[in-house]
Design a protein around this nucleic acid. Sequence first.
DNA 1: CTGTTTATCGTCAGGCAGACGACTAAGATC
DNA 2: GATCTTAGTCGTCTGCCTGACGATAAACAG
Lengths: 244, 244
Amino acid sequence: MSPYDPSAFPPFAVTVDLVVLTVRHHALCALSVRRGEPPFQGRWALPGGFVRDDEDLSQAAARELAEETGLRAQNGAHLEQLATYGDPQRDPRMRVVSVAHLVLAPDLPAPRAGGDARSARWAPVGTLLAENGQDHAGDATGLAFDHGRILADGVERARSKIEYSSLATAFCPPEFTVGELRRVYEAVWGVALDPRNFHRKVTGTVGFLVPTGGTTTRQGGRPAQLFRAGGAALLNPPMLRPEV
Amino acid sequence: MSPYDPSAFPPFAVTVDLVVLTVRHHALCALSVRRGEPPFQGRWALPGGFVRDDEDLSQAAARELAEETGLRAQNGAHLEQLATYGDPQRDPRMRVVSVAHLVLAPDLPAPRAGGDARSARWAPVGTLLAENGQDHAGDATGLAFDHGRILADGVERARSKIEYSSLATAFCPPEFTVGELRRVYEAVWGVALDPRNFHRKVTGTVGFLVPTGGTTTRQGGRPAQLFRAGGAALLNPPMLRPEV
DNA sequence: CTGTTTATCGTCAGGCAGACGACTAAGATC
DNA sequence: GATCTTAGTCGTCTGCCTGACGATAAACAG
């Protein structure tokens, strides 16, 4: 390997940051970790870390995900690249380019703190984004670095992507009911959907849902059919997000 | 600034690569430059270059775009981040992470070669992607590095994005006719569209087109009304791409 | 047994898209 | 100048999908 002339380009640190979303208690929640060291010590941030010398970006994201949550991308969770953030001032220590990834996961057991994070928590995205301000003492209260912006971009990606893809099933356990899937849409979009029209729509879209034959009453009320995610990745026609 | 421990992370080179698309002669074309130095000397590649120490990723992309084409992003062209490619083996010299950007531009004068590129050309994307194979001598004939993949991702992004956004107007001159806009869709999607239904659709979508009052016969036939792009960024309902 | 909750099936009207007919207005050709 | 060719523009009709409901079914709680 004949390296470039080292003076020909500036050296960068490359990290991956994770926007891990799930639906719990009828709300869209994101994983955040408390920073144990400066800068932004004590503030909440997105999980993430350096990309190692021998791994691809998606491998680094999957590794960080496993380290922070124990979650494996194969295990029903969905992982995709979100966007890359490289403002020269985004990290006060040095030039860091962060490749953000988006993870959609079913409701998980309590997260485990890992690495240099003192603790980790699930928080509703509305709370995390609304905290992007100042508290009574005038200190900034939002996420560290530019993570508020990254989270907002990830949430917007998730909101639009469940319109035209079957990704909403990534928020559900392996077997789920139509009502559970509807509550995912309602939590992510923050709207109420008509159960009858929703049922007609998702059961009529070929490849979206595959009935397993079983039923469950875990949501109360009349027993509901159980489904698994079908093979179709794209929904045609898409789900329509109601107007504001 | 207290830097990280340099042994705590591997150093990366960060580049921007550009997928510059335009519509000429009824075909979707991409800008490619011939490499003047190893590796892949003499092969075609996407334009791009190193991100400088003091510039943001989008600034670097805009700078490279101006250097390679003389195009300014304000001047009707559209620039957005596409995706980031960081396979450890993607550049044989060292670890390079490339933040690819997508540019949609109206039909331009002949590109000018710049930097270390011997020459530059517009080529139909079908040709560029079909060359991802081997020639009779067994040499690889496609784009250098992983640029074939990057180009394919950019083309797919453009194809899907003109469905639900007004981005197709970025391929048109400042004033254009409904027929010219239709030919953009036909070239990007590679399909034929019904002129009557297309006209009804685009003129009926509020915010998409603004009539200028003028007419033109530059396409022959009956004079056509001239329009400018309206303010709407998203089309609701979207344009429907015909089935395959 | 009655009320509550959730699931599921039907019905109906409005809107939009695909298919296609009809007409208009310019330049090109004979 | 009559006719042809090329686009552009306006209408019509039909089928599909969606939103807004009503109605029924099947569990559990009191």
